[in-house]
Amino acid sequence: MKYLAWVALTYLLLALLSPLLGRLDAQLYAPDVALISALYLGSRLETGPAVLMAFVVGLLKDGFSLSAPVGVYTEIAVLVALIGRFLQARVDLVSPLPVMASSAAISLLASGLFLAFESVFHRAFDAYGEVLTTALPLALTTMLVSPLQFWLMERIRRRLDSHAHGNLLLRR
């Protein structure tokens, strides 16, 4: 249930983000909510579920941004989930500051990966300058939004876990 809620939250944020930032004329500073979700999933779940969920989240992002070949964001999301798994044992991804720092670093890495995948697989790609100039603002906005999104996803997890635990006790 919580997996579905996490995917729904990411889906909703992706759906709202584009028109909202378009309205505010700030598309270039859109936080990468799919990346934050993938990082959270990697830091909280086992490798199998984390990779599977990141795959779905990445695919959704691919669905919302069809300018890049389908699979670019999916691949990035899966890799970020794996990085999240790696960081989970080394960094405290609960407090806001580590979350922010990790998000910013991973966002920069994701921009690099995006550039690499695009240059390798996308024959018509020529927007290297745009990707390089927006990498830093994107990392900063992602960094600022990440604690809030982590908090939301954590609240969903706690709410649904306690609900499931209550149901289990009632059944016994």
Binding site: F55, P69, V70, G71, V72, T74, E75, V78, F117, H122
Partner: peptide
Amino acid sequence: LVAPVASM
């Protein structure tokens, strides 16, 4: 990891 690469 491979499926997205194939898709790309």
